[in-house]
Amino acid sequence: MIVRALEAGDRLALSALRLEGIRLFPIAFLLTEKEALTCADDALSGWIDSGNAFGVFDRKRLIGFGGLQGQNFTMSRHRMHMGPFYVTPDEQGTGAADLLLEHLFEVAIARGSTQMELWVAEANTRARAFYARHGFAAKGRIPAAVIQGDVPRDDLFMVRDLTAALPVRGPDGLRRLHAGDWRIFRAIRLEMLRDAPRGFGMTAAEFEAKAADEIITWIEKTYLWAVVEGGRVVATAGWYPMPGAVQAHRGHVVAVYTTPAARGRGLAGQLLTQLASDARAQGKIQLELDVGAENTAAIALYEAAGYRTVGTIPNCLNHAGHIHDQHLMICPLTA
């Protein structure tokens, strides 16, 4: 496969491939099929002549295309918009899309851009996962950005810093998780929600529906620590700062879990100690968590780590009809 700028002789192939994309994936395009059919040939020719249309080819067959659009003003010339972007279905998963996108990155950087931007339908979770894998992060949303067949569709604004390296999965050991670890965190998060559904404030189905960029954003906003063995997370615990200046001295603990095969080794205690050290280093004076009043094993774990119960929320969570109380526990971080 090769990627190159499209030329005048590619116009018919581009037109046919664009029509295919609109028919098969209307959510990925702003044009309707009717508009595309009535679009003047010189519009596509103009796009090709501008030098902003690129294609990926399998031998001589055009199998995908992508576009770039720079900014005209001095203060925004560091930004490059990408779109449209499409690869024919039978070539998806072959690396063609990766090759095309990497080429667009190279062109944007060569043109002096330091930031790539795009719009994607919020419901297009497959595309969002692809872009997240290549370093894009969701930065905003336009509600009802598009109305298709009287149905409004929200779009997400995604951005990639072209000066930053792509996130990669980290090594084994006890360490903080980062964006490149989203897949291994997703695996244990689904496991914990299925294995101990009453221990968390989210269902497995709710989490499974989350797109990759949503998981990455959550990881980046959370001080999420884990024990990784053989490339797999076997225990995890995290905390996040409370919002606002008047709550900035507090942190909230989340996602405390050890996979069954790794229990009995003290990993959860090690992680809770790490959370306390981490939060203390960031100037926090108190960590807090919620735990089910029926979860005696977890309560004992937290008490051993220095937490104490300060109150109870009655009827706090409803797990498929099982309504139960939650204790609020606090761990002081100062002597």
Rank of each mutant, 00 (worst) to 15 (best):
P84L: 04
L37C: 13
F25K: 11
G83W: 07
G21Q: 05
P152C: 03
I27H: 11
V151D: 14
L101S: 12
M80D: 01
R61A: 15
Y131C: 08
S50H: 07
L68N: 08
V87L: 08
A13S: 13
V56N: 06
L118M: 14
Q115K: 06
I109Q: 09
G55R: 07
F25R: 12
Q148R: 13
V107H: 08
T38K: 12
F57Q: 13
F25A: 13
I142C: 03
D41H: 00
T38E: 12
G135V: 02
Y131G: 04
N124H: 13
A13G: 06
Q69N: 12
W47M: 07
V87C: 09
G67R: 10
Q92W: 13
F65H: 14
L12Y: 03
M116Y: 09
G112L: 08
T114Y: 08
A43D: 00
R160V: 07
M80H: 02
W47N: 02
F130T: 00
G140V: 04
D58H: 12
A123P: 05
A96P: 03
L62F: 07
S45D: 12
A144D: 14
Q71Y: 10
A16P: 00
A121N: 04
Y131T: 00
Q115Y: 02
P26Y: 11
Q115C: 14
L14Y: 06
T38W: 11
P26E: 11
R133E: 14
E33N: 06
G64A: 11
A53S: 10
I63H: 02
S45K: 02
T32I: 04
R111F: 05
F157R: 09
